[in-house]
Simulated scan of single mutants.
Amino acid sequence: MSGYCDIAPGHPLHGPYHDTEYGFPQREEAVLFERLLLEINQAGLSWETVLRKRAGFRAAYDGFDVDAVAGYGEADRARLLADPAIIRNRLKIDAAIHNAGVVQRMRASHGGFAAWLDAHANEDGKRRDKASWVKLFKRTFRFTGGEITGEFLMSLGYLPGAHRPDCPVAVELRQRAAP
């Protein structure tokens, strides 16, 4: 996504995301769940729209608390569908609630969402490719097609390509990863 390195710097929304989040590894469950929820909601829309509504998503989805979202019922669905601060799409809302339950179960099966991602990062002794990740995500989560899965994983450093090799953020990420 080298084009992002060209348009994001200096932009009031894209700039901070590009410089401090995009491509940066994350371990915290709420941060991972937020990223997945935002990527799902971006489908069919611009990333700028999602970034503009980010605070609304945070408020509407209890700070991206997995346990709270997994427990949502019909009243919460109705509340979310009526909330103009978020993207009001029933399929995306249902996916968020379902996926929160999936993340809850990952605690028992793998020790958490980050550990689940780490456990699947390699396949047959080599780094898992995008197509394989997409198949895994489609079996595991709802509303996670190729673009959503690819962007989610790229945004966390599990897939390459978040930044141009000469982007200052890419240089910083390589320095952080060096032993």
Rank of each mutant, 00 (worst) to 15 (best):
A8K: 07
A8C: 15
P9E: 07
P9F: 09
G10E: 05
G10F: 09
H11Y: 09
H11I: 04
H11P: 03
P12R: 10
P12Q: 02
P12K: 06
L13W: 03
L13T: 02
L13F: 06
H14Q: 15
H14I: 12
H14W: 14
G15V: 03
G15P: 05
P16L: 00
P16Y: 00
Y17T: 01
Y17R: 03
Y17Q: 04
H18K: 03
H18T: 07
D19R: 12
T20F: 01
T20I: 01
T20V: 04
T20W: 00
Y22A: 03
Y22F: 14
G23S: 03
G23F: 01
G23L: 01
F24S: 04
F24V: 09
F24W: 11
P25Q: 01
P25C: 02
Q26T: 00
Q26D: 03
Q26S: 05
R27N: 04
R27H: 05
R27I: 02
E29M: 05
A30S: 15
A30G: 10
A30M: 02
V31E: 15
L32V: 06
L32A: 08
L32G: 09
F33D: 13
E34F: 06
R35Y: 02
R35E: 12
R35P: 00
L36C: 13
L37Q: 13
L37S: 15
L37G: 11
L37I: 13
E39Q: 11
I40G: 13
I40N: 13
N41I: 02
N41W: 02
N41T: 05
N41A: 06
Q42V: 09
A43D: 05
A43L: 08
L45F: 13
L45Q: 05
W47L: 13
W47F: 12
W47G: 14
E48A: 14
T49Q: 15
T49R: 14
T49S: 15
T49K: 14
T49I: 15
L51G: 10
L51P: 10
R52T: 14
K53Y: 05
K53I: 10
R54W: 06
G56M: 07
G56V: 05
G56T: 08
F57N: 04
A59Y: 00
A59S: 07
A60S: 14
Y61D: 00
D62C: 10
D62G: 00
D62V: 01
G63R: 10
G63I: 05
F64I: 05
F64E: 10
F64P: 13
V66H: 06
V66S: 06
D67R: 12
D67Y: 07
D67I: 04
A68P: 03
A68W: 03
A68L: 03
V69E: 08
V69K: 04
